[in-house]
Amino acid sequence: MIMKPLEIEHLRYSYDGRFNVVEDVSLTVEQGAIVGLIGPNGSGKSTLIKNTFDLLRLQSGSIRLSGHEHTSPEAMKQAIYLASNDYLPEFLSAREYVALMAKLFEVNVDHAKAAELFTMFSMEGRYDHLIENYSHGMRKKTQLVSALLMRRPLTVIDETLNGIDLEALYLAEKEFRRIRDEGRSIVLCTHDFSLLERLADHIVFLDHGQMVFDDPTADLVAEHGSLATMVFEYLESDVRCP
């Protein structure tokens, strides 16, 4: 039986015990799929992701990563999380950071390949430098490179692509397609709708913690013309603004 990289069932979450920021959300990410996770600020995207990685205590529902309960050590090995901020251990060099990740994921890492990726992402010769001396974009690219090296069954990218330059974005797109072709999955949380139209197989649209759309990208684009139109139509609709 093939395990789904991510299965979320009936997830609810509240920060203050009164208002739910995620309301009964169920979501499945299929193997070899790129899923775009979109929604306005405060719609519950990051809360959903933080619940997935057990950074927030699960209050209701269940989450499984490749069939493992999301809090288990096995689950931790199945997925890699690229946070929205550039908060990396800046007292390490990129090589040390990648080595640490490899040790924790229990994979062998090819540092020559890592250095090659650094060169590809216009960071030649910086692999052994302290992350402290990297710019914001370089840190984001370091996150990306580590994900490309670890190659987990699921990669969750929480707005990491927002801070990188066009050249890196182009290369990242190509790499993401490769990852998908290998049968691995990606959840891409971004406001870049054109990127999602090019890349995502499926779109999950959250608003006020509720699932608004959970459909193939091609269907949504065919119905609304574009993802941007879909979102704007929804935001101005009576459903949202009674």
Binding site: D54, S72, I80, M101
Partner: peptide, 13 residues
Amino acid sequence: LELSFQLPVTNRE
């Protein structure tokens, strides 16, 4: 603590 959020360790670890 947040430094470790991108690392594959469980909360108890």
